[in-house]
Design a protein around this nucleic acid. Sequence first.
DNA 1: ATGGTAGATATTCTA
Length: 261
Amino acid sequence: MFTIATWNINSVRLREPLVARLLSEEAPDILCLQEIKSPVEKMPLQGFADLGYRHVVARGQKGYNGVAILSRLPIEDAGDRDYASLGHARHVAARLENGVTIHNFYVPAGGDIPDRAQNEKFGQKLDFLTEMRDAFHADKPQKSIMVGDLNIAPREDDVWSHKQLLKIVSHTPIEVEHLGAAQDAGKWVDITRKDIPSGLLYSWWSYRAKDWDAADKGRRLDHIWATPDIAGAGHGSRILRPVRGWQQPSDHVPVFASFDL
DNA sequence: ATGGTAGATATTCTA
């Protein structure tokens, strides 16, 4: 059995102490980070290694984006892909010794206006998702887990108000459709929703709310999916809401799942 | 309808 977590950390250098706290208190076998906002060579890796996380596969860049996989179990680099040719560090993959492949994604946020004619970033987000679909269609993933900040809350109960968010980027029908096409192409099973099939679930709360906890205007942007051959081994999903209340938090909280493999 | 916060970097962009 192993546990895997995904967390948009919004600067791994600033929040090194929070990452260390999560590793100490929750001890996932694998932690996938997004928005590390750092070149790989400037990541604070020594402290994580001292906690037992000696295996790292990462893609970084200065100031923006960046994804990393920290692991207590041996992993090998399984490559990356520049989806939508943005030149951004938004994907990396690693392989465990048991043959399971881990994909770590940071899908573009997409700007504020949900119209590709008025907002280039929204078009890039849709193109990124379309290329994910095509890649999963061309090369059907097997024994794979895919996690990350997908920047889309697909279900009505993944947002605080379905009606009020229908025209808000992250919950528009066209984004949900594009994400669904990528999911279908890989036959990916949403492990979080397999374990917790109904009810409101959020993994992100804006920094802009006066009182995020009281207002509770959250969205489920962070996901853990698995291919059908191993989805049955997935269980024990958790979203660690209290982490949003830690000192100087990320606006995202970690999402966990376990796999009996 | 508007503006609200946060981080990296440079005085603006991205989220």
